[in-house]
Design a protein around this nucleic acid. Structure first.
Length: 1047
RNA sequence: GCCGGUGUGGCGGAAUUGGCAGACGCGACGGAUUCAAAAUCCGUUUCUCGCAAGAGAGUGUGGGUUCGAGUCCCUCCACCGGCACCA
């Protein structure tokens, strides 16, 4: 009876489905066991693509399945669900191209992918399967949107609260609104303004209904605003910043994108910057992913500083321009200011003679798309406004420019320019001849200054001077010299006997680059003159021909009240900010890069907003009772590709039947919101729905959510609860994972969920890569049609390959992520047909570490397939079908091997290092080949260890073993090992002489150091090597090795 | 440019805290079985020199720390990923 994987796999997949063994019971349901610990292991759910899965997709799914099965064996109650992220641009594009309604194509694709996934024997609880396009699902997506719409962010508590509470606070005057929109609490006793309100505050009672509504609406977490959006004419929709690539194109489809102002739904994610950043400390995620999120959030600490406008500049403007800077310590070096072209104060500061030039520049900047800007690189452009401001620390009058290297979207849209210590300001100052003033001496600059003060500039030739300086600076930086006199003398002494070879000490950091630049300067005979001219005048100039952005020590930084001179950068920042605060000129400020999330799309295939627009501009939330707002059935759902700047885009839903578009409430006719939500909406919360997918009352039942999401705290570990293991690709590092965290935190603030974070542990699997082939024209050809000259398919060739051909044409072999576009996809179906899914699972796991990208090589699959066949033959007599198992206990050696293997496999499973788990099982199995009959004890342990990895063959063998007493394999338990069995009576020591292995000795494992050494000295080969040499030192690493140091 | 990751035989990869580099698999080579082939089984397989015993070299480069470095520190290089005028 041979190993018939097809029959075995079909049999067990049917049995599992029929018995529902993988169904996870919620609290209160039949079969729920409150004593079991829970484990929630989740895959990033896929988008149901028309071409189905290739072997790259299931990599993560197989891994989570192994974890799920392993955890079940350890006695956990495991939640392991699967679903589909089915809304979005890709599905709609596919439908448009094929002329079929997206719901049809989506359903068809889901059916196909579900079939493919089931074939892999993945132990999902299919009863919980969902798609974001299910009406019963997106009803709750809309419901969550209403929560966002119905909430505001209270900065005092740093959390979201229901909007009704804001209304109450305003109405009862426990909170006031200032004209700039700031919310303030009532002033302390004695400081009230007229009528008990703060000076300048807007009185709620005096506002009209419209004004009140505007105040409230502008503070919601979901709000409408006219913003410069990323408009993609080809896709006919707005895109999020995260959906636009660096070169100004759409991530989906690679179409051009440009900015245009449009009124859009926005989500106020920026209010959560602080918590999104800080709470990364609570989760167990890969550090690189955390870092990417941190960079995206972009927290900077700095200061806000007001620069008053100089007399004769402003006509009717406010008196000051506010800037944000991370380097307030360089304030004395600010020699000009720059406003973004769109800055509201530009008009006010512009002088009449400059007005035409400023207008022209503004117009030009507005017209330039991001792609154009990119093409121009970092060349600085700008125009002088004619206006001046006053540097508050030294009362200097400095010019105000506008330039597009300052952006309105970050900070205040205005900067103070410190060309000496910021490379962009430096480039701008160079271009326009603006003054540059050093106010921070970095270690390199300090050393150069010290050199210039000591060297005999008049009497030494230029080349020698340069060489001396490089030596001197190198010495000072490398050895952190503070006694410059001694250092200078050392250099002179060295020069006497040494020829010039390079900077003293090892080449490190700053000195290496100075060294390179100087050598270059020497070489080209440029720069030296400049350098020496400056040195002779007692000035210091940077050798690097760029701003010195490193931290250092302040110089030239003092006024009558405050001096930063001599202070290191961190201290200087602190002192100057304190001074500014005291004088009311500035304050400490934390700034983030993250912008609010543009949340509407002008597309059909998305969740409709539960929002109505009234005739007077009222924005009204749909009553909860009226959810869901179903997507209307439409024949023509194509987007309108348009780029008419005067006409707002018409989303497809504008063509929906009037019966859908208009709703009458209390005699008022409302029009529905015609935009739809972006694809991210559905994936923001699906992990919650999986806890309780059929709940009609709530988006997730409270008890189910608590049970699956809250995990017990481990001592000393940062802890946020949430999904216990979330596995997916790193491509979602900032998009999905940031958006989900944001929604989750809002739901947490509003008391709808129990944990501050959605995903307690994240694991990024690598990609599966594969060779792909291009012909002479650079056109990719299908990988399976490529062969060598003799016609052998490329997949079967060795790695050192002969020239390859596609239908006679020579092709080039390249390497990339597997997929449709590279024409190198291999489907799991073809592998399952040929080898079975157990082999497929083992192969993908055996390929290498899960978190690394690795090369798919069909030829190698045979290795793990042979392993399974050998396992089968170790258990079953292929002739008779008889079980080759004995009840005799195993021999001592086999038993020790078994226990060592159990330890290795257990450790590997815990570390998710499935490749090494499989290697250990192969070794054990190979050691058993020679045995006539397998001891039952070994056979049982082996099957248990194999079962998470190759569950079908394991189940079959388990059944043949008689189920070890009626136990289902899933609950059979994971084998344990005995520490004592890991130790051998004797141990082999490699003996090193001066670190080289010269022989090995066998000693009892409890031998002490002297005994080990004595044994080594008796060894013939070792003795020969020691002959005539003196033993200086002996190192014995217990149980590991012996090293004899001789002289 | 900045940030992050990776670099080990012909190939994929292994190597708790620094302790025998190359586990395991693929491929290749040799052998057994077979009329033959497939399949299977046994053996060899980092490189160089050597009939051999053995010797030497070796984890991208160069240096350092250490009795001892794939592992720690510094430097440079290559490839992959992210960000990119963020003040």
């Amino acid at each position: 009876m041979r190993y018939d994987f097809a029959a075995i796999e079909a049999k067990w997949q049917q049995r599992w489905a029929a018995s529902g063994v993988f169904r996870a019971a919620n609290p209160g349901e039949a079969g729920f066991d409150p004593d079991k610990p829970k484990f929630y292991v989740l895959d990033m759910f896929p988008y149901p693509s028309g071409v189905g899965l290739h072997v790259g997709h299931p990599l993560g799914y197989i891994a989570t399945d192994i974890v799920a099965r392993y955890k079940r064996m350890l006695g956990f109650s495991v939640l392991h669900p699967m679903g589909y992220d089915a809304f979005g641009l890709a599905a709609e594009q596919f439908a448009v191209e094929h002329g079929v309604h997206p719901r049809q194509t989506t359903e068809k694709n889901i059916a196909n992918m579900t079939r493919q996934l089931k074939r892999l024997g993945l132990s999902y609880d299919w009863d919980r399967a969902l798609a974001t396009t299910d009406v019963g699902y997106y009803k709750w997506t809309q419901w969550i949107f209403l929560r966002l719409h119905g909430a505001w962010f209270d900065p005092a508590r740093n959390k979201a609260r229901p909007i009704a509470e804001l209304e109450q606070l305003l109405e009862s005057e426990r909170l006031y609104i200032m004209p700039d929109g700031e919310l303030i609490e009532p002033p302390a006793q004695g400081l009230e303004g007229i009528g008990g309100t703060p000076f300048g505050a807007i009185r709620w009672q005096e506002l009209t209904v419209h004004q009140r509504r505007a105040v409230i609406d502008s503070r919601r977490l979901a709000y409408m605003d006219e913003v410069a959006v990323n408009w993609c004419p080809a896709l006919g929709t707005v895109l999020a910043n995260e959906e636009v690539t660096n070169d100004g194109r759409s991530e989906r489809g690679n179409y051009p994108v440009h900015r245009r102002p449009l009124k859009q739904w926005m989500l106020r994610i920026t209010k959560y910057c602080d918590r999104l950043e800080r709470d990364l400390d609570l989760v167990d995620w890969p550090e690189p992913i955390k870092l990417m999120q941190r960079n995206w959030i972009g927290r900077s600490e700095g200061a806000r500083v007001d620069f008053p406008l100089a007399y004769g500049t402003a006509k009717d403007a406010q008196e000051a321009i506010t800037v944000f800077t991370t380097r307030p310590d360089t304030l004395f070096g600010a020699t000009y200011m720059v406003l973004a072209p769109e800055h509201p104060l530009v008009d006010a500061v512009t002088s009449d003679p400059q007005r035409a030039a400023v207008r022209a520049y503004q117009k030009q900047a507005a017209a330039r798309s991001d792609a154009d800007r990119q093409a121009e690189g970092k060349t600085k452009t700008g125009v002088f406004t004619g206006g001046h401001a006053v540097n508050p620390v030294n009362n200097e009058r400095i010019p105000i420019w506008i330039a597009d290297y300052v952006m309105m979207g970050y900070g205040t849209g205005a900067i103070m320019a410190v060309p000496a210590h910021d490379s962009r300001d430096f480039a701008f100052a160079k271009t326009f001849g603006l003054p540059i003033r050093d106010v921070v001496y970095t270690p390199a600059l300090t050393a150069i200054a010290a050199f210039a003060a000591r060297a005999d500039l008049a009497a030494t030739d230029e080349k020698t001077l340069c060489e001396q300086m490089v030596d001197f600076v190198g010495l000072c930086i490398n050895q952190q010299v503070s006694d410059f006199d001694a250092a200078y003398q050392a250099i002179l002494r060295r020069r006497e006997k040494d020829t010039f070879g390079g900077p003293l000490g090892s080449n490190r950091g700053a000195i290496a680059s100075i060294w390179q630049d100087t050598v270059k300067a020497l070489h080209e005979s440029v720069g030296i003159a400049r350098l020496l001219a400056a040195a002779r005048k007692g000035e210091v100039i940077s050798l690097l021909d760029d701003a010195e952005t490193e931290h250092g020590v302040n110089v030239n930084s003092a006024n009558e009240e405050v001096s930063l001179n001599g202070l290191p950068t961190a201290q200087a920042k602190h002192v100057i900010v304190e001074w500014l605060e005291k004088r009311g000129l500035g304050r400490k400020q934390i700034q983030y890069k993250l912008r609010d999330w543009i949340f509407s799309r002008q597309r059909y295939w998305g969740e409709p907003f539960p929002i109505l627009h009234g005739p007077d501009g009222e924005v009204r939330a749909v009553d909860e009772a009226d959810l869901p707002v179903e997507l209307p059935a439409m024949e023509d759902f194509k987007p309108e590709a348009s780029d008419d700047p005067s006409a707002p885009p018409r989303p497809p839903l504008a063509r929906a039947p009037e019966s859908w578009r208009y709703v009458e409430i209390d005699g008022v006719r409302y029009e529905r919101e015609l935009n739809t939500m972006p694809q991210w909406a559905g994936s923001c919360w699906y992990y919650l729905r999986f806890c309780d997918p059929n709940n009609d009352e709530r988006f997730v039942g409270r008890e189910a959510e608590r049970y699956w999401m809250v995990s017990p705290k481990k001592d000393g570990q940062p802890h946020a609860g949430g999904v216990d293991l979330y596995v997916g690709g790193a491509e979602h590092a900032v998009l999905h994972l940031l958006y989900s965290r944001f929604w989750h935190k809002v739901l947490y603030d509003l008391g709808e969920v129990s944990t501050p974070e959605p995903f307690g542990r994240l694991f990024n699997q690598g990609y599966i890569q594969a060779y792909y082939y291009e012909d002479a024209r650079g056109v990719r050809v299908p990988a399976e049609e490529v062969a060598d000259a003799s016609g052998t398919p490329a997949a079967e060739l060795q790695d050192q390959i002969a020239p390859l051909f596609h239908h006679g044409q020579p092709v080039k072999r390249l390497y990339g992520k597997m997929g449709k576009s590279l024409k190198n996809a291999v489907t799991p179906d073809e592998i399952c047909d040929q080898y079975g899914c157990d082999t497929m699972r083992l192969y993908e796991m055996y390929l290498g570490p899960l978190d690394q990208s690795k090369l798919w090589n069909t030829r190698d699959i045979i290795g793990v397939h042979r392993f399974l066949q050998r396992v089968w033959r170790n258990f079953v007599n292929e002739e008779t079908g008889a079980l080759l198992v004995t009840d005799e206990p195993p021999g001592d050696e086999i038993r020790r091997l078994l226990h060592r293997t159990i330890k290795r496999v257990t450790d590997s499973m815990n570390a998710m290092a499935f490749n090494t788990a499989i290697a250990a099982l192969i070794e054990l199995n190979n050691a058993l080949v020679s045995a006539e009959r397998l001891p039952r004890e070994v056979a049982q342990a082996m099957v248990r260890m194999l079962s998470p990895l190759a569950p079908h063959i394991a189940e079959e063998l388990w059944e043949k073993l008689g189920r070890a007493g009626e136990e289902a394999l899933m609950t059979a338990g994971w084998p344990g090992y005995d520490e004592v069995m890991l130790l051998d009576a004797e141990v082999v020591y490699p003996v090193q002489i001066n670190g080289k292995v010269r022989g090995r000795i066998t000693v009892p494992s409890d031998a002490d150091e002297d005994a080990v050494l004595a044994a080594a000295q008796q060894d013939e080969q070792i003795a020969r090597n020691l002959e005539g040499k003196q033993v200086r030192k002996v190192i014995v690493v217990k149980g590991k090795l012996l090293n004899i140091v001789v002289g």
